[in-house]
Design a protein around this nucleic acid. Structure first.
Lengths: 204, 204
DNA sequence: TAGAATAGAGAACCAGTAGAGAACAAATCA
DNA sequence: TGATTTGTTCTCTACTGGTTCTCTATTCTA
């Protein structure tokens, strides 16, 4: 995700002044600080930063603009941790987080193959017991057997977690939610990025 | 859980003055200190802090506003991991396995409190996304808040995993399966053994 | 040089936040 | 026991702050 000049400028300002705010700044406060007259203009830039995973999304709430936590590299990571890459929401690209975090995942889930962890957003697999906010452990693979749950890249742009069925003619992706229908794609529109190996959920 | 401005302001005040109170402050005292005229308004903020796990819930008691003691940063204590104790099946005692195995559970799930892992047998919590064969991470505790999912020992003999509701008269255990009914017990028949903190599932 | 990408102004919308105050019930105190 | 605190719940009001528009200006690029 490439930022424009103004976007990086604004992000810089946020980072530089992060410790300087006693509370998360509102759009109006930022507008004044940045010499903007219109919240609407600022909003577009902030949205770009949210999309780039640099600013926390605030779904309608009024709590000011916050940077996404840039946790310093966890040193335990070398110790057989599994990288946490971001959020997977049906219908959108993976929202990568800037610096990979590492999770201590039991070897029983990962096996010996390379894996990564994604956070699930949405309810499309709810009937398989995969809920909004769960973390899935994905084994890096570019092929899958029928019936496996896969991370699939569709048309090179959006990514989704679904149960896969491959026929000679097409690839069918089955959600596990009565409200959603299976969708069929031509083979060349679906690129498998990994296979579901494990699941983590926090009730904290 | 993201706090609003006023909520963080009030939380700050509580933290800053924690050592300053000789006993927990009342709502009225706090209202005055914070320049509020209405207890009702303050109550909403405090509830938000309780919900965020920053303030201890005070079920009815007076003079009850206390901060949740902040666990010090997790010390990578999980050298050995979390003990795997056996299988929990609704209606039977925990089937302990002879030699405790240890699982490498991410610190995000355990927090700093002592935990153990059980394997779930049965479908009684299927609508909460807890499936037969899943592993649950349980924090060792002998009390729980309403709405939490607990490991409960019933009549000193059988153990079960259910959502708990404690009323003055009785304890109600709610399964999450349309085919099963909630069951009410007298308080002395239910002994809480732990609270659900996390969940692991293997698709191997 | 036309069209796209970037940047901004400003208006309008409305959900979230904040607070007041009344009424109630449980806990505590006299 | 009765009176008083104290926490809880409710309704009502106000306004702030994030979002969405449309419209315009400027810069970049094919």
């Amino acid at each position: 995700m490439n930022l424009t000049r103004r976007q990086t400028e604004i992000y810089r300002y946020l980072v530089d002044n992060a410790g300087h705010f006693d509370r998360p700044p509102t759009y109006d406060e930022l507008c004044e600080a940045l010499g903007l007259a219109s919240r609407g203009s600022l909003h577009k830039h902030i949205q770009a930063l949210v999309h780039a995973g640099l600013v926390e999304p605030m779904d309608g709430s009024h709590r000011g603009i916050r940077l996404v936590e840039q946790e310093e590299p966890v040193q335990e990571s070398a110790e057989a941790g599994v990288p946490y890459l971001g959020t997977i929401a049906a219908g959108r690209p993976i929202e990568a987080i800037p610096q990979a975090d590492y999770l201590q995942v039991p070897a029983e889930l990962t096996g010996s193959k390379p894996c990564y962890v994604l956070k699930v957003s949405g309810d499309s697999m709810i009937e398989e017991g995969i809920l909004d906010g769960d973390y899935v452990v994905i084994e890096q693979r570019d092929s899958a057997r029928n019936g496996e749950i896969v991370v699939a890249l569709l048309n090179g742009e959006e990514v989704t977690l679904k149960r896969i069925e491959q026929t000679p003619a097409e690839v069918i992706l089955h959600p596990a939610n009565i409200a959603m229908m299976p969708v069929a794609y031509p083979h060349d529109a679906v690129q498998i990025q990994g296979v579901l190996r494990g699941l983590l959920r926090s009730y904290r």
